[in-house]
Design a binder for these strands. Sequence first.
DNA 1: GAAGATTGAACAGTCAATCTTG
DNA 2: CAAGATTGACTGTTCAATCTTC
Lengths: 161, 161
Amino acid sequence: LLFEAHAALSARFAVQLAEHALSQIEFEVLLRLARSPGQNLRMTDLSSQTTLSTSGVTRVVDRMERDGLVCRRSCDSDRRISYAVITESGLARLDEALPGHLELIDEWLTGRLCPERLDALLDGLRRVRDALLPQAVPAPTPPTARPRPQAPAETPAELRR
Amino acid sequence: LLFEAHAALSARFAVQLAEHALSQIEFEVLLRLARSPGQNLRMTDLSSQTTLSTSGVTRVVDRMERDGLVCRRSCDSDRRISYAVITESGLARLDEALPGHLELIDEWLTGRLCPERLDALLDGLRRVRDALLPQAVPAPTPPTARPRPQAPAETPAELRR
DNA sequence: GAAGATTGAACAGTCAATCTTG
DNA sequence: CAAGATTGACTGTTCAATCTTC
């Protein structure tokens, strides 16, 4: 069920992204960075927005920096902090890969279910997700702007896969 | 959305299974074996029923055989084939871990949504999954019994996670 | 020659330990 | 001493190559 649907969809995404020489995580990193204010994110925040540990983020950013998709920038006010910033090349790569990704979503999700079914599916998933992530909705880092844009509707919600 | 719900749920499963010294894949292997006729499965079939490659299955079964949860048995009529068979110990381990797993499913899915919502969610997921796995529903291996029991209702459907 | 299974090399990710800065 | 990031050792997985059997 949930696992099968996820695995199958995930596999499709993977082959499409591979055409643009991106892994799913790299794609997600580019997407999160591109739509963050200033197009940068602290390493820690990047890890909490993905499924990776902080060391995982370090390694991914290492690779992507080597490939020129992102670069690191240190913080003036707190020198412990390191930001990952998306580069021109990274933005270009994202623009290149995104349309195909959206097509896949439309092909297998949006276009496959009638609107009511789609709404019901998203509603159910959202409820499960919200129940499982109690710490994500309240205020784990109150001063830091909560980058989650409250799922304004369909398209952005799917964007976040 | 789908990815977030899946990741969050998956994480819960992982910690529960870890209490019984099982990884998610090991649990899935035990489950698939236990409910297969003869409680055995060819290595290849095991790989197509999971997310692993054939070499991945080889390695998992290596580990589990070392731990006594499964054992290998060769085929009389075709000596290329190797079966994985669940052992007494493996069955015991599954019995030990399964109730907690079902509790989690009930806690976060079944018990969290009213019946209509749950049906709608499962229906949507099933449609997406079926659309994405065209080769799974028809006859890829027609003579071989299709082990998929057609999702007889709710409980077994969730069992397959 | 193809199918089934295994192996070696390589890779991506985690955990625990470490370093630096606040 | 806690927070942020990185590193080293390790685990699990895949890909390509190999071996055996049909």
